[in-house]
Simulated scan of single mutants.
Amino acid sequence: MIETKIRKVGNSAVMTLTTEMLTILDAKEGDTLFVVRTDDGGLKLMTEDPALKQALAAAEIVMDENRDLLQALA
């Protein structure tokens, strides 16, 4: 487990990500992180947008199912 503190900056509360956390996330300063709530009430940090990932997976299925039609239209 990694511990970090929440501190006030202006009107916001911020959490510092340590070098270890950034390494685990494979992220760097300036990257966008996505936060989703887990079933147990926690939060999960991710470097990829889960909604976009899900949409791309669905599109891949549709393209696979209609490959011949899509090739004919191209």
Results as ranks from 00 to 15, higher is better:
L25G: 00
L69F: 15
L25Q: 00
V36L: 08
Q71A: 13
G42C: 01
K44N: 07
V36F: 02
I2M: 14
E20T: 13
T47N: 10
D49Y: 05
T16L: 05
R67N: 13
M15S: 07
P50D: 00
I2S: 08
D64Q: 06
D39H: 03
T38G: 00
M15P: 06
T4E: 00
P50I: 01
T19Y: 09
T23Y: 13
A72Q: 13
L70V: 01
E20S: 03
D68P: 03
V35F: 07
L73P: 03
A27M: 07
A27L: 07
K28N: 04
I61R: 03
T19M: 07
D49K: 00
S12I: 02
M15L: 15
M1K: 09
M46N: 14
A58S: 05
T18Q: 01
Q54C: 07
T4V: 06
A59W: 02
Q71D: 14
T32I: 09
K44D: 09
V14F: 02
M15C: 11
A51K: 14
L43V: 10
D64L: 10
G30A: 00
Q71M: 08
A74L: 14
D31G: 01
I61T: 10
T18C: 00
T18N: 06
A13W: 14
L45G: 01
G41L: 02
R37E: 10
Q54K: 15
V35C: 07
I61A: 12
E20D: 12
L56E: 02
G10K: 11
E60Y: 11
A51S: 14
Q71P: 06
L69V: 15
K28H: 09
V36C: 10
T38K: 04
R37V: 09
I2V: 15
L52C: 08
I61W: 00
I6Y: 03
L70F: 00
M63L: 10
I2W: 12
L70Q: 07
A58W: 04
T16N: 10
I6L: 08
K44F: 03
E60A: 15
S12A: 13
D26E: 04
D40Q: 13
D40S: 11
A57H: 14
E29Y: 03
K8G: 03
M46S: 13
I6K: 11
T47G: 05
M63Y: 12
E29A: 04
N66Q: 00
A51F: 15
A13I: 13
L52F: 09
R7A: 12
K5W: 09
Q54H: 14
L25D: 03
P50M: 01
A27E: 01
V9A: 05
A72N: 13
M1Y: 11
G42R: 03
V9R: 09
V35G: 06
D26F: 04
T19P: 13
R67Y: 13
M1P: 03
G41R: 02
T38E: 04
E3R: 13
A13D: 15
E65Y: 12
T4W: 09
A13K: 15
D26N: 07
A58Q: 13
K5E: 08
L17C: 04
R7Y: 15
V62W: 05
A27N: 11
A57L: 07
K8S: 04
L25P: 01
M63K: 14
L45M: 05
T4H: 02
G42P: 02
E48Y: 10
E65C: 04
